[in-house]
Each structure stands twice: as structure tokens, then as C-alpha cells.
Design a protein around this nucleic acid. Structure first.
Lengths: 349, 349
DNA sequence: CTGTTAGCGCATTCAG
DNA sequence: CTGAATGCGCTAACAG
């Protein structure tokens, strides 16, 4: 006798997987009805709905999204391509983006490009095979092949953490050139006269630095000491950067060291501490990234504050809006958001 | 007249996507031959191979992996479930894991559980719908429903960053209880008598702390001051932790503060610096995580070193081995790797 | 509101 | 070494 409350395993097949048809049989309805009950419950009588759900539970059915995606040409998948995840200034962005997408039942395919356009190209091709509904890329500089593929894919594309006049589709970020310019003006205003720059060789970081150098030159400031280290940005790289700057026999010690990321800036602070160099008294330090990892935490550190989470949130919103628009074939809106940045001056003196 | 070297766009269909059949037609072979030329080139004459590749290029064909996966019941997809990606001690692990998988043509689906078993449960269900070939989970503590689903899915499962006697399948990590015990003994040996502990409320971090407390009690050490902050671990949380410990009127100032992660430890260092408390002279600090973010960088910091990259590498290896074994239906090997940890004493005094 | 028919794009399994 | 038939599991589009 079957006891009540005993979970009835209706179809415990040797290892075969449960399909819509199995569920339909158990529920006593047509397969299509099961599909509807699961995906568009509003189109189904609540009574049959109940029967279906019960059958789903009884069978342990897990919908096969590969099949669903193939049939509907909607994958409910969004791909994210980043240079790296290590010590990443993107982590807030990814977190916010995924939060937004997950709550609308989209899943996330992650790809790491390692700052290489070839890798990005290969990854884009591989990922498009998965027929994602949308794709998010860090940066706006891609190989022509990448751009062509992405364009042909005819899906929403969001380029983030940068700005450009010729986006593939949507773009949400800020101008790295503008960052460099503003930092230069800000520091000159503050009265600094000698500068050090520490960067890793990531393209956007270098652009910020080059812009900074140009603006300094324009104002006839002394040529800054410029140290570039291999990506990714680590604390160790930051230490090394300051070491090189301070050990350079020929150079005068800069009054301030500008870093292309907060992680580097932390490394610089660590190196300064270990050398007994006081920050900001002996040397000032400026970082770049998200407030949560920099200012307020290191009162001696100035920083360029980027709202990484906002970029992620806006990207998710833009994508979801497009997805919805696609269903009601509304006109596509162009999206170009300059999230800006702010220069946060240190609190301690 | 068509010029030479001009890329012949053979099928530029209004927006329809190119399929195997289109490529086959252009190459003048059967669809199946195209499939083989792409997936098992060794089974195809090099001449037809060439024709096919040319047709692929000419058409801009991108294989539909949804269809391929459905037909072959192999998705070439591995899912990774993590609590969070923010300031994450897992980033090295993810990087190494993805490097290993990507070079074998597997793609990665990322899920964020936020330390919540309910989220994990929902995520596992959603992800299994994608029919991944394998799945990697942070931690070994899951809801019964999660465990059942994972078991029923009959795919390789790797639990990482922890150890257990009853793994779902494979497990690669270390014992958090052992970390706590060893830290206690190490610090007692060093002669410390009063302790502070700063942790965020992540389950594994708390287990390390509880184990540490137990071992201290066992050795009749003074009861440590214990501050728990909400996850995720941030620099700010570390600052707050030390503040609370130092401001607690009732407590004696501990000689050492043990942190449940390197990020917290960095926050503690920042707070100490801003208060003019010298580390390690006035107060010693111990972190937890990966060497690259801690020791050598902060000579004043002791740390429990975890080789996160190794965990990722081993996980990738274990999965790939299983995937290969499945094709030659070799017997499945059990995998249980204790990656251990090491306590790294500070370098400065 | 529910069922039926057809086919998404590919790989397995045979036959040649 | 290559080809033809068949179906993976699901949903769109229509019919009832």
C-alpha cells in the first residue's frame, strides 16, 4: 500500500532522462500543454496547471533548455567577455549584471579574453555557437572579424567600461581619455609638479595614462616617470612599480604617483609602508576604480571613482529592454550611457 | 567581374542563419560530411576537408551548438557555482579552471549563489536544464534537493574549497577545521596570549574561526574577541572589524588579529595605519587566502596560504579526465584531493 | 483553453 | 572514406 506523503517516483528509468512526454503521460495531458503550463502558465486552466506541476514533481522533470532553445531560437543565455577575473575591477560590474539577468531568468556564459584580440575573436565565435540572446563585452576595441561576427549575429551587444562613437550596438561606460585629462588638471590645480605613473599594460589603462601624459605636457609640466608592468594588476605589480620609480637613480622623486588601478595603488601603499615612506606626506598616491576598494578605506589615497555596479545594472537593463522589445517587435532604441567618473581627493593630510 | 581575393559572400540571406546544409551545398558534399570535417577531421580526406573549410569561410557558418548538443547529448559546457565574485578569494581558482577547460573547448556557465542554499538550489535546477557535461560547486554543504538533483543528473560533479567524507562525487580542497586548529597551535607556539578574530558570515570562514576558538579553548587560552560582519568580505568590513575590537571598552587589546580572508586583513591593516597602530609591533595581523594577494606584499602580515589556482587546475583536470573516460567507457576513478594550506609567518618584525 | 502537426540544426548509426 | 535516414526534446502555428 502506498503511504500518503510518500513521494511517488513515477518514472525512475534506469538512467534515461525524463522528457516532456513522460510528464504529459503522467499528467494525462498533451505534451504541448505541459510546455505551456511551464512557460506561459497564464494560458492554462489553473486546474490542469496543478496536475502538470504535480506530474513534474513526481517525475523529477528538468526541462531541456537545449531543445527548447533550438525550437524557439531563444536561449535565455547572455555571454560576458572580460579580459580577466583576477583582482578585477570588473567584479562589481559582473555581480550587478548577473543579478539583473538572473532575476529575469537569464543565465550567464563567461569568457576570459586575457586582453588578447585573438582570444576574444576565438571566444566570440565559440560563444555565438551557443546562440546567446545577448552579449556583453569589456571594451570597444575589437578585431574586424569580431565586429563582423557580432554584427551578423543580430543580437543585442553591449560594450562596457569604455565609450566610442562607433559602437557595435550599445555602449555603457566612460571616456578613458577624459579620465587622463581630468586627473592631470586636478593634480596641477592641487599644485603638484612632479609625477610618477604606474600602469599595467592593459589597453584602457594605458590610454588613461597616455592621456594624462599628454595633458601634463600641454601644461608644460615635467615629464612624468612612467612604469608599465605586465597585466594583470596585482599588489605585487604595484610594489614593483613604486620600487622602480624610487630606485631610478636619474629621476627626481615624484610628489605623486598615479596608478592605473586600485589594486596597483594598494601595492604602492604597501611598498611605501615597507620603505618607511609616508603617504601622503612624503609621496601622494592616486588610484582608479571603485570606491568600495579604495577611498574611505585608505584615507591617504586619492582615487578616480568608477561606479562599476552601475555599469552592470545599466547593461542588464538595456539587454532586458531589448529582449522585451523583440517580443513585441517595438523599435530598437539606441543606448549610449556615459556613466562618468569622479575624482575623490584624499581625506588625510 | 569578381576580383580575386574578394571574399565571396555566397549566402548573405536576409537575416536567416547559415546551416550545415547551406555549407554542404556550397562545398558540394553531404551535410554529414561537413559535420565530420568540422568535428572529426581525421575521418575525412584532406581534399574534401579543404573544400568544406572554404565553404565554411565563404558562408560565415557558425555551428549551432544547441542543435549539436541536443543531437549528441554532449553540451561541452561546464557550470561553476560560486557564492560571489566580489573581492573573491575564488578568482584564481576560476581563472585556472577556465583556462584548463577553455583549452579543451569547453565553455563555462557561471552562477552566483550568494551564500544562500535556496539560491543554489534554484540555480542548480536552472543550470541542469542546460545539460552541462560537468559542474563545479564551491563548498560541500548543500540542500538535500540540490544533492538529489546533482546525483540524478549523472554528470561529474566537483566540490571545491572544502573537504568532506561524503562528497556528491569528486572533492578538491582542504579542511577548514584543520586550518583553525593549525592556526591556533602556530600562534600559541609563537607565544601569543590574547586574540582577536574578524570574519564575515560566510559558512566556511565561520568554520575556520570556530575551529580556531575551540583549539584555543582546549589550550586554556584567553577567550578571543570575535567580530563577525556581513558578507561579502570587503576592505571596509576589515576596517570596521578592527575598529570594533579596538574600541571595545571591556576587552583587552589582543596581541594578534586573525582574519577570515586576505581582503579583511588588508582592511585591518588600513585601519591600523589610519589609527597609527603599528603592525606587527603594536598588533599582529594574520590573513587567509592566496599568497599573491598577501605575504611578500605585506611583510607585516602573516597568512594562511591557499593555492587557489591549484584547486582550479586540478578541478579542470579531473573533469576532463572524466569526459575522456566517458567516451571510452573506462571505469570512473574517485577523486579526493586535499590541497592543504600552509601558514606563512610574517617577514618583518 | 487544449491538442496536432511540423520542424528547429545537428550527430548517431548504419549502409555503401 | 562518404552518404541517407532518423530522431534528440522541445515549441510555433495552427486547428479544434
Amino acid at each position: 500500500m502506498a503511504k500518503k506523503n510518500e513521494k511517488p517516483i513515477v518514472i525512475p528509468p534506469g538512467g534515461e532522462s525524463v522528457t516532456l512526454i513522460d510528464v504529459a503521460r503522467v499528467a494525462g495531458v498533451a505534451p504541448m500543454t505541459v510546455s505551456r503550463a511551464l512557460n506561459r502558465p497564464e494560458l492554462v486552466k489553473s486546474d490542469t496547471q496543478r496536475k502538470v506541476l504535480e506530474a513534474v514533481r513526481a517525475t523529477g522533470y528538468v526541462p531541456n533548455l537545449l531543445a527548447g532553445g533550438l525550437a524557439s531560437s531563444k536561449s535565455r543565455l547572455v555571454a560576458i567577455l572580460l579580459p580577466t577575473i583576477a583582482n578585477s575591477i570588473f567584479s562589481d560590474t559582473v555581480q550587478a549584471l548577473m543579478d539583473g539577468l538572473t532575476s529575469s531568468n537569464y543565465q550567464t556564459l563567461l569568457g576570459l579574453t586575457g586582453y588578447s584580440r585573438e582570444k576574444e575573436e576565438a571566444l566570440v565565435e565559440a560563444i555565438l555557437g551557443r546562440r546567446p540572446d545577448g552579449i556583453v563585452l569589456a571594451g570597444t576595441s575589437h578585431s574586424p572579424a569580431t565586429i563582423e561576427r557580432l554584427t551578423k549575429a543580430r543580437i543585442p551587444v553591449v560594450e562596457i567600461w569604455d565609450l566610442t562613437d562607433k559602437p557595435i550596438d550599445m555602449v555603457i561606460g566612460f571616456s578613458h581619455e577624459e579620465v587622463g585629462r581630468q586627473v592631470a588638471r586636478h593634480l596641477l590645480d592641487k599644485g603638484y609638479e612632479t609625477f610618477g605613473i604606474v600602469s599595467v599594460d592593459d589597453p584602457r589603462g594605458l590610454r588613461r595614462c597616455e592621456s594624462l601624459k599628454r595633458e601634463l605636457a600641454k601644461h608644460r609640466a615635467a615629464k612624468p616617470v612612467f612604469e608599465v608592468l605586465p597585466a594583470p594588476a596585482t599588489l605585487q605589480a604595484g610594489r614593483e612599480g613604486l620600487s622602480r620609480i624610487l630606485d631610478a637613480a636619474h629621476a627626481t622623486k615624484p610628489q605623486i604617483v598615479v596608478c592605473s588601478s586600485d589594486t596597483l595603488a594598494q601595492g604602492v601603499l604597501a611598498e611605501a609602508a615597507s620603505r618607511g615612506v609616508a603617504v601622503p606626506r612624503d609621496i601622494a598616491v592616486m588610484g582608479f576604480g571603485d570606491l568600495s576598494t579604495a577611498a574611505h578605506v585608505y584615507p591617504a589615497l586619492s582615487t578616480v571613482r568608477i561606479d562599476g555596479a552601475r555599469i552592470g545594472t545599466e547593461a542588464a537593463r538595456a539587454l532586458l529592454e531589448r529582449f522585451n522589445a523583440a517580443e513585441s517587435d517595438a523599435p530598437v532604441k539606441a543606448v549610449r550611457i556615459d556613466t562618468g567618473f569622479s575624482i575623490v581627493e584624499r581625506q588625510s593630510t
